[in-house]
Design a protein around this nucleic acid. Structure first.
Length: 899
RNA sequence: GGGCGCAUAGCUCAGUUGGUUAGAGCGUCUCUCUUACACAGAGAAGGUCAGGGGUUCGAGUCCCUUUGCGCCCACCA
């Protein structure tokens, strides 16, 4: 026994070994490399840039999903023969990483301020060195076939240069500007965040009604409501609708800000909805976007009352220094004491919260850097609208348009330290900005050396937006950039369509003049098995590493890939992973069997090379599977393709063809040699097509299979390509030409299959003992009979599939008295079960069957008599007509039985 | 307020140019440790494809509508 393969596939020992073999073998690299001799620039490559995970992050199912998906695409194209490049890398993830390090510092009783900027950054880099390769190691465990020599990090010198270049170019073009605006401020993070980083949640809050007293001492007041009483301190007007009769007499008069005593005007603005609330609106320009706009229209002063950590500032008078929420309570209590309150009521509204951290975001007046995004957005819209970029699934195109058409300027400055520092220097003398590619030593305007760099850094997504080209060398015209850019497919989750995808398209078009990729493939989110979002607090988090440890990487990958559809969330259940572990094991065992068949069969071409029905069936099926898989891959229906392969392998190849082949070889029939080889050929094609889904187990089996072929059947050719050293670079099965007769082979085999099933069924129903040896007689009609005559061995094999070693002899015009008849289309089989069966029961069974057939005949007759026959396409009508004929024949046979 | 998705077997889901008796995995029930695999094999039960209407010879699939769940965008104090 040259091969002693264990009964169970041992993924634990296989995976690391196989991955190392691939990596060391250099198979992850594009075979056509612009940096190497022999490079041919005319062959189009297939390229994916990885969505860079947070450098200090840890693997979760979202990563597992995109790695599985992208590795599938990459492996498929590699086997198709494309020079294939998958660029890996990580993202510095400004806020997330900085928070982690700050938390670690806090444990030592330190803060970043105490440490100082330089020391702090050193600490973050140390942190990055320590934890930065965990995530990439974990991605390797998933089988990712990235070119690790081309790994990038967003803070690498090269990428930092790209960021600097991009900033300067946009600045020079007037697309980047600095100015005071109302922005989203995160008091906990002490930074501005973009609109996208604010999430709204429906919450119950209190709505406070109070009196805005007229300043003239008349005792009259305007009732106003607010959910944020502390902002009263920053009010600079009360606005009413110009047509509102109730408040007409107050217009132009003054009211008094509670407690502070400031006098502010009553103005009119059509923004105010007189039917909502009290119909009067307090205007706080520095802390509300709408109020901000009103203030601009009316030239109102803007008074900030909050500081950067969410405390009241000096404008809050007696409340200065209080936390915003504490102030809210105190102020209200004071107003109550002063008789200025009316009432409070519960109120449900959406509250803005920080995407990271979840604290309440405050709109604040602040000077920040912005990208004037509209001109970029227009080009990005056009790229998709023209079809130069396709989004899969298509419905996301609408969402994409909708966002870009209503886009607001992008606030790109962050008051953080970890990130790309804004390349702007301010002059202490002339006050002007110097924005240059190389760090300046003096002001570009007045030459003063007294310049200072902007302390802020850029939004992490600014560097991410450049990722597809910055990782390839841009702004340098490197060989990689020239050859591999633009990339092919951008595969990522739909949740970052705006954050990332849209911005990459905008920046790609702006800086390279090309769409950074031709297709955007969006996958859904992975949820738990009941559709709940996974979260630590719910305790329903599935750790991919644990799953891989328990069931193997292939099982996890196959689960994520099959049964998920583009753009739709998927629910992951461990049961499914387990089932797919079983699938991998089934593959393994099929491999063991095929290898043992090769060993058992003669080593030289002897015996009959004639094709059996089973042979023709499995090759015919293989042809359609190859073609269907190809079509599904073209349409990004990877899940469907995987399912198809799963079914073909298990239900056709393993359950039927291999069972037949086993008997052929075991009985030492004259077909043993060719049968073994045909098994190997079909199985090899299956392995190749499954490789992108389950790379480890297929590679492992392939290695053994290849060795067996070389040792026992050295002349044997695979159906496509050659026996390459490793499966990862084996060629993808080509669509085989039709030779005629495929359809018939499939149909005939399926009929026999049905017959065998019917026999098994009957046996099960009648409780025939498995040990009981039975003889049976088969009667066939026309074509199939002839087919079977020349396919005796197949026929025998099929017959022996039954557990009872049921032997079926082919005879025409045989109708034994005491047999039980089974009719399957044109086939009849007689089983000598009469002794076991009550005659009357058997009659009833046949009658029931006949009734069913007659109902079907009626239905079909009615169908074919109606408009269907005229209006439906001929081949559809023909199909139904055949069905009818079959049913009629079968019914006739049963009637004869019943006579 | 605007937009999108989902609703198919007990559970989780496939089902992309509409083709007529709707599939898988898991679970349940029978039987089998048969010489690749009990992580298996053979068989069974289980669905008016959310409700209603329409288009069509024909609808799980297309259109309209109702209900329920979920998501995105906008954010009326």
């Amino acid at each position: 026994m040259p091969y002693e393969l264990p009964k169970t596939y041992d993924f634990k020992s296989a995976e690391a070994r196989i991955y190392a073999m691939w990596e060391v073998g250099g198979y992850f690299k594009p075979w056509n490399d612009p940096n190497k001799p022999g490079f041919n620039p005319n062959i189009r490559p297939f390229v994916i840039s990885i969505p860079p995970p947070n450098v200090t992050g840890e693997l979760h199912l979202g990563h597992a999903m995109f790695v599985s998906m992208e590795d599938l695409m990459i492996r498929y194209h590699r086997m198709k023969g494309y020079p294939t490049l998958w660029v890996p890398g990580t993202d510095h993830a400004g806020i997330a990483t900085q928070l982690m390090v700050e938390r670690a510092l806090a444990a030592e009783g330190l803060t970043r301020e105490k440490l100082g900027r330089e020391k702090f950054l050193e600490r973050v880099w140390q942190w990055k060195e320590k934890y930065g390769n965990i995530i990439t190691q974990q991605i390797r465990r998933l089988g990712a076939s990235c070119d690790w020599d081309r790994e990038r990090f967003t803070l690498d010198p090269g990428l930092s240069r790209a960021v600097r270049e991009a900033f300067v170019r946009l600045y020079e073009k007037g697309l980047i500007y600095r100015g005071p605006r109302l922005i989203n401020w995160s008091p906990g993070l002490r930074t501005a965040v973009s609109d996208l980083e604010v999430e709204y949640s429906e919450e119950q809050v209190t709505l406070y009604y109070f009196k805005y007293m007229l300043a003239d001492g008349s005792g009259e007041y305007i009732p106003v409501a607010t959910i944020r009483p502390e902002t009263i301190l920053g009010d600079t007007a009360v606005a009413v609708h110009p047509e509102d009769e109730r408040y007409r007499r107050y217009i132009g008069r003054k009211v008094v800000v509670p407690i502070l005593g400031r006098e502010i005007p009553v103005i009119t603005d059509t923004y105010v909805d007189p039917t909502f609330g009290t119909g009067a609106l307090k205007v706080t320009p520095a802390h509300d976007p709408h109020d901000y706009e009103i203030a601009q229209r009316h030239n109102l002063p803007m008074i900030s009352v909050l500081d950067e950590i969410g405390r009241m500032n000096e404008n809050a008078g007696p409340y200065a220094g209080l936390d915003r929420f504490e102030c809210r309570q105190r102020l209200w209590a004071d107003m109550e004491a002063a008789g200025l309150t009316l009432r409070t009521e519960p109120y449900i509204t959406s509250i803005p919260r920080a995407q990271r951290g979840g604290e309440i975001i405050e709109p604040m007046l602040s000077t920040q850097w912005f990208v004037r995004i509209k001109p970029l957005a227009e080009a990005a819209i056009e790229a998709v609208r023209s079809g130069r970029i396709r989004i899969v699934p298509e419905r996301f195109e609408k969402i994409y348009y909708n966002w870009l058409e209503n886009i607001q300027d992008w606030c790109i400055s962050r008051q953080l330290w970890w990130g790309h520092r804004i390349p702007v220097w301010y002059c202490a003398d002339c006050g002007k900005e110097t924005v240059v590619r190389e760090d300046p030593t003096q002001c570009a305007h007045c030459g003063s050396p007294r310049i200072e760099q902007d302390p802020d850094v850029l939004d992490t997504w600014f560097s991410s937006a450049l990722w597809p080209f910055s990782t390839l060398g841009w702004p340098e015209e490197t060989p990689d950039y020239r050859y591999f850019y633009p990339t092919s497919i951008m595969e990522t989750g739909y949740d970052i369509l705006f954050f990332w995808v849209a911005r990459m398209i905008m920046m790609g078009l702006e800086f390279t003049g090309k769409e950074p990729f031709h297709t955007v493939y969006l996958h859904g989110l992975v949820r738990d098995e009941h559709g709940q979002k996974m979260s630590k607090t719910k305790g329903n988090v599935i750790d991919p590493l644990v799953v891989m440890e328990q069931f193997g990487t292939d099982a996890l990958r196959f689960t994520l890939l099959v049964g998920s559809t583009p753009g739709n969330d998927m629910n992951l259940s461990i049961k499914k992973v387990e089932a797919n572990r079983n699938f991998a094991n089934k593959l393994w065992n099929a491999g063991r069997l095929v290898i043992s068949l090769l060993e058992k069969a003669p080593q030289e071409p002897v015996g009959s090379a004639e094709w059996t029905l089973a042979d023709r069936f499995i090759f015919a099926r293989l042809k359609t599977v190859i073609a269907d898989v190809e079509r599904l891959f073209q349409n990004y229906q990877y899940g469907q393709a995987g399912q198809l392969l799963y079914d073909f392998f298990w239900s056709d190849f393993a359950d039927w063809y291999l069972e037949i082949a086993k008997l052929q070889v075991a009985t030492g029939g004259d077909r043993a040699f060719y049968t073994a080889e045909r098994c190997a050929q079909v199985f090899d094609a299956i392995l190749r097509m499954l490789h992108p889904f389950v790379p480890f187990v297929t590679e492992e089996i392939y290695g053994h299979l290849r060795r067996a072929v070389l040792e026992h059947s050295a002349h044997l050719c695979p159906l496509s390509g050659t026996w390459s050293e490793v499966l990862i670079i084996a060629s993808w099965p080509e669509i085989l030409p039709e030779e005629g007769g495929e359809e018939t082979a499939i149909k005939d085999f399926e009929r026999l299959r049905e017959l065998v099933r019917a026999i098994r069924n009957l046996r099960a129903e009648k409780g025939v003992q498995p040990t009981q040896r039975l003889a049976a007689v088969l009667v066939t009609g026309e074509r199939l009979y002839e087919t079977l005559q020349e396919e005796k061995s197949t026929f025998a094999a099929l017959a022996r599939l039954d557990e009872a070693r049921l032997t079926i002899h082919a005879h025409l015009d045989t109708k034994p008295e005491k047999h039980v008849a089974l009719v399957e289309g044109e086939l009849e089989v007689y089983l000598p079960l009469a002794d076991l069966v009550n005659r009357e029961e058997e009659r009833q069974r046949l009658q029931k069957e006949l009734a069913e057939l007659e109902a079907q005949i009626q239905r079909l007759e009615r169908l074919l008599a109606g408009e269907f026959a005229q209006k439906a396409p001929p081949h559809v009508v023909e199909k139904e007509r055949q069905r009818l004929e079959e049913a009629q024949r079968a019914a006739e046979k049963i009637r004869r039985q019943l006579e």
